[in-house]
């Protein structure tokens, strides 16, 4: 199956959810005009990133009426976006939502919230615990948020659940300016190259742009494919809507050329994980 995906590399306003919703609707409209079937926004695209104490003031439950105008558009296109979630457990999460044909297919709560140096996420938000694969009309999808992408264990878990397409929704600030590309961009591209090669999945990486308190989010969105192609490069530091047409047939081809998936043995992984947990952490 071929799917046309729109990568919405936007610059959300910090804390202004109404204006950001408008921006989502504009980008969704353009994606529909271009016959895209899915549009993917970056991390916290509805709220902006560096909210600190304002986090609580923009938190919304996933079923809030606020999202109705976006939900309405999902009759024409599948939509994935980021928001601050007021969870059912009264905790706040850095979440991503996938909607299809006016229904919420999945809400993912970011698992690894960086809290060091310039990052303060755990100070204001709770940690998610579950990584799932959900079925869309286009195939099996998973969502990961920013730092999650630097934990190969999470990519492995999506692979183990037979995810075809991972949506990596990010808010990565630029750092490292000695090389040809920003150092962070090199790191992300190398990681995605590796994951798509060994897990034979597609990864749709959508990173935001714009500045918040001196942090400059670099963009550089693209789609990595199992055969090692990079599609729809959005470039850095500018808002942009790019399109990639991916062919899920590539997964089949890759898994026959390089049949790692056939070799994979989850029982061995489980047995060893149990042993490691027992020996090193005293728990099961």
């Amino acid at each position: 199956m071929k799917i046309k995906i729109a990568l919405a590399q936007i610059n959300p306003l910090l804390g202004d959810i109404e204006k950001n919703r408008e921006k989502h609707l504009e980008f969704i409209e353009k994606a529909i005009e271009n016959n895209a079937q899915i549009i993917v926004f970056p991390e916290l695209s509805i709220t902006g990133y560096r909210l600190k104490d304002f986090t609580m003031e923009v938190a919304l439950p996933a079923n809030s009426n606020f999202f109705n105008p976006i939900l309405k558009q999902s009759k024409k296109i599948d939509i994935a976006f980021g928001f601050v979630e007021r969870g059912k457990d009264n905790n706040i999460y850095n979440s991503a939502m996938y909607i299809e044909n006016q229904s919420i297919k999945s809400v993912y709560q970011k698992i690894y919230l960086p809290t060091h140096g310039m990052f303060q996420e755990l100070r204001f938000m709770g940690k998610g615990e579950k990584i799932t694969t959900f079925k869309t009309i286009y195939g099996n999808f998973s969502m990961l948020i920013c730092r999650d992408l630097f934990h190969p264990s999470l990519l492995f878990l999506t692979y183990a659940q037979k995810t075809d397409v991972v949506l990596g929704m990010s808010g990565m600030p630029l750092r490292g300016v000695t090389g040809k590309k920003p150092a962070i961009q090199e790191t992300v591209e190398k990681a995605i190259d590796t994951y798509t090669n060994f897990f034979s999945q597609f990864i749709v990486f959508v990173n935001r742009v714009g500045f918040e308190d001196g942090l400059g989010f670099y963009g550089g969105s693209f789609v990595g494919t199992p055969l090692g192609k990079k599609l729809a490069f959005a470039g850095i530091l500018q808002e942009k809507l790019t399109f990639a047409t991916i062919d899920l047939e590539e997964i089949y081809k890759k898994r026959q050329l390089f049949p790692l998936a056939r070799e994979e043995d989850l029982n061995i992984v489980q047995d060893n994980l149990r042993r490691i947990l027992e020996e090193n952490y005293g728990k099961f």
Binding site: L14, R50, K52, D53, E212
Partner: peptide, 11 residues
Amino acid sequence: LDFLYPHDLGK
């Protein structure tokens, strides 16, 4: 200390 709003809020 604990009134921690970003410099760029609402911009």
